[in-house]
């Protein structure tokens, strides 16, 4: 069932042509705007990818709220629904990230290119459950997309050493970008991965708990004949 849901979600995402094109174009615009400064360009691109995937995830979860409720009432497992949709989003995000990785590899001479791959993958893996979490708080597309934009903008502008930046979900992206581009030590990489692990676990746990609490139907006993 999870597979069918993932395949179905992929189709739904693919059919939202306008939204898909816009979220693909945004990281590209960020990247182009800062193409002269390698570090900034990659950092902005990654944050753009994060926003794009989180927004797609938000749309997908907002749109399927009522349908998922209906599916669970007739026997679908809330976990299977969440995992199926998240798998589709991660696949879309990773395909997008692969494209951008190719772009960076072609247009930049990066010190640690493999770390760019790691940073794009971690960003996608955080963004997919992040969109799901935001859809719980703001169950409408416009409001949710704006909130995500605010999170990403703050992440870009906040001092990376400050507490605020560390409390935001994509701090790991900045640390990993620094490790990929600048001649810094391995501690950036380790800090980045640690932050990534914590955020992914928190976001996934929150999304999963909410899905189960909201979607699991009441257990109703069978009537005596």
């Amino acid at each position: 069932m999870t597979l069918t849901i993932a395949a179905t979600s992929l189709r739904e995402i693919g059919r939202r042509r306008a939204a898909l094109l816009l979220v693909i174009a945004l990281p590209l615009a960020f990247y182009a705007a800062r193409a002269d400064q390698q570090g900034q360009a990659i950092r902005f691109l990654a944050l753009g990818v994060g926003w794009a995937v989180a927004t797609l995830s938000l749309f997908s979860h907002v749109n399927s709220r009522h349908l998922d409720r209906r599916l669970t009432v007739v026997g679908a497992s809330p976990s299977a629904l969440l995992i199926g949709r998240q798998a589709a989003l991660a696949a879309t995000g990773l395909a997008m990230a692969a494209g951008y990785f190719g772009l960076i590899a072609l247009t930049q001479d990066v010190e640690r290119l493999w770390a760019v791959a790691v940073l794009l993958v971690t960003t996608v893996l955080i963004a997919a459950p992040l969109g799901a979490v935001v859809s719980l708080v703001l169950p409408r597309e416009l409001e949710g997309a704006l909130a995500l934009l605010a999170v990403m903008a703050t992440q870009m502008l906040a001092d990376p050493e400050g507490t605020l930046a560390k409390a935001l979900p994509l701090w790991s992206t900045r640390e990993l970008a620094a490790y990929a581009v600048d001649p810094v030590g391995g501690e950036y990489f380790e800090r980045g991965l640690l932050h990534f692990a914590v955020v992914v676990v928190l976001c996934s746990a929150a999304a999963w708990t909410a899905a189960v609490v909201r979607l699991r139907p009441q257990a109703l006993p069978q009537p005596a004949p």
Binding site: R11, R15, N63, H66, V73, V74
Partner: peptide, 15 residues
């Protein structure tokens, strides 16, 4: 085993 057809939002617009 039940079938359930709610009044609104019972279908997915992109499928």
């Amino acid at each position: 085993r039940i079938g359930y057809a709610p009044q609104q939002h019972g279908v997915a617009p992109y499928l």
